[in-house]
Amino acid sequence: MEIVICPDATEAGRLGANAIVALLQRKPDAVLGLATGSSPMAIYDELVRRRQSGEVSFAQARAFTLDEYVGLASDHRETYHNVIRRDFVDRVDFAPAAVHGPDGLAADLPAVCHEYEEAIVTAGGVDLQILGIGTDGHIGFNEPSSSLASRTRIKTLATQTRIDNARFFGGDVDQVPTHCITQGLGTIMDARHVVLVASGHGKAEAVHQLAEGPVSAMWPATILQHHPHVTVLLDEAAAGRVQLYSYYRETYAAKPQWQGL
C-alpha cells in the first residue's frame, strides 16, 4: 500500500487522474471501477479537463459502478446511476451503454447481484478501481462487520452512513434508503489497481485504521492491506492521524519517477 500525502484535494485528484490517463494511453479499452461521492470529484474534474484538452479518451473504455441504492425511482436525482453520469460519465466520451451499474429496482435483487459479478468477470475484470472511504471505514457500501471475502450483494446501510449521506437528501435522514446493492470486499480486491482518495479531518481516523490498523471486519477498508497494488491519495487533513506521516512523505519524495502510481 502506497500512502501519498498531498497538499490538498486538488493535487490528490491530479495524481489520481495521472494514473487513469496512463492506463488508458497504454490500454484504451481498459475497464474502470467508478465510485460516487465527494472524494473522487477532484479526479473526475481533472479527467474532464484532460478530455477537453484532447489528452485522453474514454471512447473504448468500459466501467462498472460500485453500488446503488435499493428502491429509489429511476429518475431520482440521487440514484448512483444518475449521480455518476452527472458527475463524470456524461462529461466525457464514454460510448453509449459502456458504463454499467446494478439495478436497485429489480424484482429479483439476488439475481441482479449474481449477474453483476458475472458481467465484471466477462469484461475481463476491473483494471483500476476508484474508491472513497466512509468515516466508519466502509468502502463501497461494505459496512463494518462485512465479510472480508464478500461478493456483490444486498446490504443494510448503517445509521452513520445514512446520517453522512443525508446531505444529499436535503438533510433528511429518513429520505436516505435503508438498503443498497454493493460490490463486495472480495469483488473490490479482484481489481488490478485500487486508487483510494480521501480528504478532510472527518476521514482521518478511517485512514489511520486503513493504513496502520489491524485487518478487521470492523474497519472494512483494512482488507486493502492484502492487495498487491493500492494507492492511497490523501490531503493533509485526512492524513492527520497517521503515525508514519514523515515516513510516507520521505518514501514518496524518493520514489523513482518512472515508477508512477
Rank of each mutant, 00 (worst) to 15 (best):
V99E: 01
Q225A: 14
G101T: 14
E205A: 09
E143W: 06
L72V: 15
A97P: 05
P144G: 12
T161Q: 02
Y44N: 08
G171K: 04
E2C: 00
P40L: 04
R77H: 08
L148C: 07
A191R: 04
F168M: 01
V215P: 04
Y252P: 02
P220N: 08
Y245C: 12
D136E: 12
V4H: 08
L128G: 07
T152C: 15
D103A: 09
V195E: 07
F88C: 11
A9M: 13
V92Y: 03
M218A: 07
A119Q: 06
L131A: 04
Y247I: 03
V232Y: 10
G104C: 13
A238Q: 04
G186R: 07
K155R: 15
V112C: 04
A73S: 15
T65Q: 11
D172G: 06
G213Y: 09
D235V: 07
A111T: 05
G240Q: 10
K27S: 13
T65L: 14
I43V: 11
C113W: 00
P40T: 07
T251L: 09
A59K: 12
P144M: 08
L66D: 04
V207M: 08
G170N: 10
D174Q: 14
P110L: 03
E117S: 11
A12T: 06
P28L: 07
F141G: 11
I120H: 05
E78T: 14
E46M: 03
A217E: 12
G170C: 08
G101H: 11
R26T: 06
S74D: 15
F168P: 02
S246A: 15
K203P: 11
H226Q: 14
N142W: 02
A97F: 10
G16F: 00
I130A: 02
V230N: 05
Y248L: 02
A254I: 01
L24H: 05
M41G: 10
Q60N: 15
H226W: 14
I154E: 15
D8G: 13
A22M: 05
